[in-house]
Nucleic acid binder design. Structure first.
Lengths: 167, 167
DNA sequence: TGCAAACCGGGGCGTGCGTTCCGTATCGTC
DNA sequence: GACGATACGGAACGCACGCCCCGGTTTGCA
């Protein structure tokens, strides 16, 4: 790969990271290109589609989330709520995390899987109410994340939902 | 008003009601026109803008909601949760209710006001946790409504949030 | 029944977006 | 230093949407 191409790829990635973080997946691609000091065509040379760019940006963050979920503590309940808290923190700062649950990709699938595992174990341990299935939790989470992005005190929302989830 | 104009206005309103209910505010206006068996121009003859049409459709439903909130029972806590339940029921059936909280209009303002009053009284009565202000509740509700529209068991989500809201 | 006013339909405009194309500039090699 | 391959930029395309306009039709009153 040519040196300038490598440079531009990096610039695009970093511009996309900050643009997605503040505007979510919805930011126009032209805006990302402008922020990177590059034409839209250049973006498309490096990433075949907008979703691919989004996925590239989210890759390590999601992987880290999944790690966090997998390397959970012994207490399933604590692990579940810690994960929820972590997601909440991050979503309050960066708008793109909530889109990572919505925009389809294999990242999304892996994230769902990890989260589902946490839920099942927490329910088995009696820490989370049992009358809740994963799709319900997902719908709730999507809504919560959307709400987190537009309130000034995300901890409150998170606290409400967490309390509601306890068995 | 000419007879055919009256007929068309009614057809547009009823088509819009069903279109908004199943697709939310986002449904293309051309789709509503087609459903009414009418051209887009005709829709704009009767309603100056898409938002005006939406508002016309929601008018009585929102008014009924506000009535429900105002003519509340003696117990502030019960009134608050009954209102929440009512909203949840309706939002589970019709996707447009959640947009009524988002699309700006005087309906939106009146709805917010009524809901805020319920919250304040329920908190004063000790039925709802006090570490929550109206904007927080609103953000939570928006998210919840968005989630309700895409889950198969809306009662679960509603139950979680309600339990989380209790003092 | 005839005529003017009101209304209808759908084609068309402007906008914003994701995506593609291609003439031009840049890079790396001989 | 020159030449081929590679990458760049931004103009252009296709699409979807909200909204407007105008030629033709329908309506209701005289």
């Amino acid at each position: 790969m040519r040196a300038d191409a490598q440079r531009n790829r990096a610039k695009v990635l970093s511009a996309a990271a900050s643009a997605f973080a503040s505007g979510g997946f919805g930011v126009p691609l032209d805006e990302i290109a402008a922020l990177a000091g590059v034409g839209p065509g250049t973006v498309y040379r490096h990433f075949p589609t907008k979703e691919a760019l989004f996925q590239a940006v989210m890759e390590e963050r999601i992987a880290s989330l999944i790690d966090f979920a997998s390397s959970s503590s012994a207490d399933p309940g604590a692990a579940f709520f810690a994960f929820l808290g972590r997601i909440g923190e991050e979503a309050a700062l960066k708008r793109d995390l909530s889109d990572a649950f919505v925009v389809p990709s294999d990242l999304q699938a892996r994230l769902h899987e990890a989260f589902n595992a946490l839920l099942v174990r927490a329910q088995a341990a009696g820490a989370v109410r049992r009358d809740l299935e994963f799709p319900d939790l997902l719908a709730l989470l999507k809504g919560l994340l959307a709400g987190l992005a537009e309130t000034s005190r995300p901890e409150r929302l998170l606290a409400v939902v967490m309390d509601g989830l306890r068995a």
